[in-house]
Design a protein around this nucleic acid. Structure first.
Lengths: 211, 211
DNA sequence: CTAACGTTTGTCCATCCGGTCAAAAATTTG
DNA sequence: CAAATTTTTGACCGGATGGACAAACGTTAG
């Protein structure tokens, strides 16, 4: 078991400022990518000077790394909740809904993650092959069980998960394209309600009406 | 109607070298994004010096713009082929196939596009709101027709297109994640065959077995 | 109050990067 | 062949960027 670094004791100001910086960095990194973002940009977004920021995080990469570590935890939470006990259809339906809500409520996190993966995941590859893979393996086994029991159609559970990730995160990652295609927003989050309705139909019954 | 610039006449060497540069730039831009890529990197990948490269493209942005313009054409080709005359289910099924083949055969193009959209589409917004939107509007109308005629289940045709884009491009854009989750490749493009089978099932019949 | 510690800032540096330029080398044209 | 034109290169420039540092300023505990 790899040891975590001992939790550093931090002053009140340190906790506050570090959070402030991470919040600002999430904004900047998620829209410009790691290399496209400058420390100055992040510092300005956080309302402080560059040397001041560097007092809290010694290197640009440290900010990114901290952000990534926090991200992966919250990002995988919905998947962790998938459970063997409930009704399979209900479980899948609510997983889709939770993922779609995350795309709606945390689009920056989604884009930050997408940016990292797109560029070959240079900084989080180990987490993908470790944490993510074993979680997926575990949940795929559950889904496989449902399929064997004939409670849902038999297919590849991993590709099923991919398609849920892809369709839901699409609304965060490709937001500008979605907006461009759909045209001016009707108020509220109508876009997301439409998406929720559509995706439920797609995943449950597909496009060919039963005859 | 906006006028296109008159087609510049180019020497043989110019055509060859420009192609060479664009090919190299596709590699570099698609893995590092625009800001993350340097002219030096592209020049080296193209096997020439930086000033030499700048003789063919005066600015870094010119390379990117040329790449983008070419990209969008090939990228939308499968959508253009969707046709009113055939069987709806066949049309949709082969659209998914074609898109998946593009993700397999042109992953760099997919990632280049994804990078651009992720960052807010600063350079191709007009094309999204113009060319893309009107093409989608046109095809959505066709699909809507199929739905009205009861030939496929009634849903939102635009979200249907989104979900096809998302699921297919996922295999190019999130390739490293897909690989990490699926584990070591069994030879050939088994991954893509599995994906094709899965997606066909998803889009046609969904996950709940008819009872 | 004051010493110790934590925070902030201005200044500075080395490197990288997009791009220029003039001159050399290669190629094409007459 | 030689002149004209195109291609290639080395050297250079200015600005941006990641980061170092010491000095100044605040805060807190004894």
């Amino acid at each position: 078991m790899t040891m975590d670094a001992p939790a550093p004791r931090r002053t009140r100001i340190q906790r506050e400022k570090r959070d402030l910086i991470l919040e600002a960095a999430l904004d900047v990194f998620s829209t410009h990518g790691f290399r496209g973002s400058t420390i100055d940009q992040i510092a300005e977004a956080a309302g402080m000077s560059k040397p001041n920021l560097l007092y809290y995080f010694r290197r640009k990469e440290d900010i990114h790394e901290t952000l990534m570590r926090r991200l992966l935890d919250t990002w995988l939470a919905p998947l962790r909740e998938i459970d063997d006990v409930g009704d399979p259809v209900t479980e899948i339906r609510s997983y889709i809904r939770r993922k779609l809500e995350m795309a709606r409520d945390y689009p920056r996190e989604s884009r930050l993650f997408a940016n990292e993966i797109l560029q070959g995941a240079p900084r989080i590859m180990p987490m993908l092959e470790g944490e993510l893979k074993s979680l997926v393996d575990e949940k795929a086994e559950i889904i496989k069980g449902w399929m064997r029991a004939g409670r849902i159609t038999a297919t590849d559970p991993r590709h099923l998960l991919f398609s849920i990730w892809a369709t839901t995160q699409h609304y965060a990652d490709f937001d500008v394209q979605v907006r461009a295609v759909l045209g001016p927003d009707r108020g509220g989050d109508g876009r997301f309600e439409d998406a929720a309705r559509y995706l439920e139909q797609l995943f449950l019954t597909g496009l060919v009406p039963p005859r």
